[in-house]
Amino acid sequence: HTVDVQGVTYHFDNPEEARKFAEEMAKRLGLQVHVKDGRYKVE
């Protein structure tokens, strides 16, 4: 499970961890979480 944050890619084994990380980063950076091709993108 992959999370892209402003061009940096993070990998997680656990989909729940990936989702939480994406939401946390989006909140911290004031950005949105998009799901695209099964990847989380924070932009």
Score class of each variant (00 low, 15 high):
31 L>C: 05
37 D>Q: 04
12 F>P: 00
30 G>E: 04
8 V>N: 11
27 K>Y: 09
21 F>G: 02
41 K>Q: 15
8 V>Q: 12
23 E>L: 09
38 G>Q: 04
12 F>S: 01
20 K>R: 12
6 Q>T: 11
36 K>R: 09
13 D>I: 10
35 V>P: 02
21 F>Q: 02
34 H>R: 09
18 A>I: 01
10 Y>L: 05
39 R>F: 13
10 Y>N: 04
43 E>Y: 10
17 E>K: 11
1 H>S: 13
26 A>Q: 02
14 N>P: 02
34 H>N: 10
20 K>V: 13
25 M>G: 03
33 V>Q: 01
20 K>I: 13
30 G>D: 05
40 Y>A: 01
33 V>Y: 06
2 T>C: 08
24 E>L: 12
22 A>R: 00
13 D>Q: 11
29 L>Y: 07
28 R>L: 14
31 L>D: 02
30 G>P: 00
16 E>V: 11
8 V>T: 13
6 Q>S: 08
1 H>F: 12
43 E>N: 06
22 A>N: 00
2 T>K: 13
29 L>V: 03
7 G>F: 05
16 E>N: 11
16 E>D: 13
43 E>L: 06
43 E>R: 05
32 Q>I: 13
35 V>M: 12
7 G>V: 02
5 V>D: 01
16 E>K: 09
6 Q>V: 14
2 T>Y: 15
37 D>I: 02
38 G>S: 04
7 G>W: 05
10 Y>T: 06
41 K>A: 12
41 K>V: 15
19 R>N: 05
16 E>R: 09
40 Y>F: 10
18 A>M: 03
39 R>V: 15
29 L>N: 03
42 V>I: 07
27 K>G: 08
7 G>A: 06
34 H>F: 14
30 G>Y: 04
19 R>S: 07
26 A>K: 01
26 A>R: 01
11 H>N: 12
39 R>W: 12
12 F>V: 02
10 Y>R: 04
37 D>E: 06
2 T>A: 14
13 D>T: 12
14 N>V: 10
18 A>P: 02
36 K>G: 06
3 V>T: 03
21 F>I: 02
28 R>C: 08
19 R>I: 07
40 Y>S: 01
21 F>M: 04
10 Y>K: 04
34 H>Y: 14
29 L>I: 03
8 V>S: 10
11 H>M: 12
31 L>M: 14
12 F>L: 04
9 T>I: 15
9 T>D: 06
38 G>P: 02
4 D>G: 05
33 V>E: 01
10 Y>S: 05
9 T>Q: 11
35 V>R: 05
6 Q>W: 08
11 H>V: 14
8 V>W: 10
4 D>K: 05
3 V>R: 00
9 T>G: 07
8 V>M: 12
8 V>L: 12
23 E>I: 12
25 M>K: 06
42 V>M: 03
42 V>L: 12
12 F>M: 04
26 A>C: 03
24 E>S: 10
39 R>Q: 15
36 K>T: 14
39 R>H: 15
22 A>W: 00
7 G>M: 06
7 G>N: 09
40 Y>T: 03
10 Y>V: 06
35 V>H: 09
28 R>S: 10
1 H>T: 14
23 E>A: 07
40 Y>D: 04
15 P>I: 09
33 V>W: 09
34 H>I: 15
11 H>L: 13
5 V>E: 00
33 V>P: 02
10 Y>A: 04
26 A>D: 00
6 Q>F: 11
16 E>T: 11
2 T>I: 15
30 G>R: 04
7 G>R: 05
1 H>N: 13
14 N>L: 12
2 T>S: 12
14 N>S: 13
14 N>I: 09
36 K>L: 14
23 E>W: 14
14 N>M: 11
21 F>P: 00
24 E>A: 11
9 T>M: 14
18 A>T: 04
3 V>M: 01
7 G>E: 06
18 A>S: 05
27 K>A: 13
14 N>K: 12
14 N>G: 12
40 Y>H: 03
10 Y>M: 05
15 P>A: 13
30 G>C: 07
2 T>R: 09
13 D>N: 12
35 V>S: 05
22 A>H: 00
6 Q>C: 07
15 P>F: 06
41 K>P: 04
19 R>Q: 09
15 P>E: 14
2 T>W: 15
1 H>I: 09
34 H>Q: 11
25 M>T: 13
29 L>W: 06
26 A>E: 01
37 D>R: 03
35 V>N: 05
30 G>S: 05
21 F>E: 01
39 R>A: 15
20 K>E: 14
22 A>E: 00
8 V>A: 12
39 R>Y: 15
14 N>T: 14
35 V>L: 14
24 E>G: 09
25 M>A: 11
39 R>N: 15
4 D>S: 07
28 R>V: 11
24 E>C: 09
17 E>D: 13
42 V>Y: 02
31 L>T: 05
2 T>V: 15
33 V>R: 00
10 Y>D: 01
34 H>M: 11
28 R>W: 08
18 A>W: 00
41 K>L: 15
4 D>T: 08
25 M>N: 07
25 M>F: 06
13 D>P: 11
31 L>G: 09
27 K>S: 11
20 K>C: 09
34 H>V: 15
43 E>W: 07
35 V>G: 09
6 Q>E: 11
4 D>N: 06
18 A>K: 01
32 Q>T: 14
25 M>E: 14
36 K>S: 14
6 Q>M: 14
23 E>C: 07
38 G>A: 03
32 Q>R: 10
2 T>D: 14
17 E>T: 12
3 V>A: 04
37 D>L: 03
16 E>G: 10
11 H>D: 11
28 R>H: 09
38 G>K: 04
41 K>M: 15
13 D>E: 13
9 T>S: 13
2 T>P: 15
9 T>W: 08
34 H>W: 09
17 E>V: 10
30 G>M: 05
31 L>F: 08
30 G>K: 05
43 E>Q: 08
2 T>H: 14
41 K>E: 15
29 L>P: 02
5 V>P: 00
24 E>H: 11
37 D>A: 04
14 N>D: 14
21 F>K: 03
30 G>I: 02
38 G>M: 03
